[in-house]
Amino acid sequence: MQELTITRHNALIDPLLSIWSWQIPVYLFLGGLVAGIMIISGYFVLQGQYKKNVFSCFYLPHIALVLLSGGMGALFLDLEHKLYFWRLFTTFQVTAPMSWGSWLLMIVYPALWVNTLIRIPERYQGKVPIFDRWSAALNARPVLIKNIGIANMLLGTLLGMYTGVLLSSFGARPLWNSAMLWMLFLVSGLSAAAAFVHLITTDEYERELLAKADNAFLTLELFVFGGFITGLLTNSRVHKDAVHLLLDGPFAPYFWVLVIGMGVLLPLAIQLLAVNHKIKHTALAPLLVLAGGLALRFVIVFAGQFSRWS
């Protein structure tokens, strides 16, 4: 029996850390989604699929730019000292993942933008002549285009990893302090991106391909979850306590029902049936995957704040 009384009462900290609200999970989700989209779109570019008009890689980088900006907007909304935002770009802090992330985003934007130049949508062609000229120049150099594809895949992977590393570097929050977190967020980002393409594509082949890929990502995600949980369960007391927040603590219903059940298992089952032609593809499975990805970020961000050393 131990009674602990603390007279501290700082807002956002006491009684439990609650510094991050919806903005950070949304930012992390959109960041992960964009990361996945960049990898998929980069892969398609590499594969030369950009030559097919119907294919999603045709408009994926454009959408990614919008989604990423949405995520950055959410992040900006979360900042408490907004007018000092520019300070991120007056320095590089080698030990701070957030500094790495800020600069990474500075490269992601041009990479996505160059990706958009590979195929300018018809209705925008001729609007900005210099873009058309650059686009033409790019298309005259297939090797360069392949490299743009590779760069998008690489940067997408880094971005996806970053969303996890950002949290896992907080040693004071045992739930986040897992080396599996970046993999979890990366795989989840990939599966969300696959679901997203599945959802928006009009091409049968692409849908089928992405559904299959998504099944692979979801299966992989289950294994990563296993690793994530096992890692924490076999760690120190504070890490055990932390993972119990998800397993049988206050966050368990959200974790098991929203994240695992409806976010992974159910869409995986639906899509397995669909790819095996037992049922038709519907929007349900990808929508569930996307919602599950968002729920994962919410659960991890919130439960992580509840986890602590004392």
């Binding site: 700082n10 807002a11 956002l12 006491d14 000292h81 907004k82 929050r173 004392s310």
Partner: peptide
Amino acid sequence: CIGCKGCVASCPYGARFI
């Protein structure tokens, strides 16, 4: 300071606030 609150999360002692 940009008010990202990372340091608040990083402190195991809860010593920081915004």
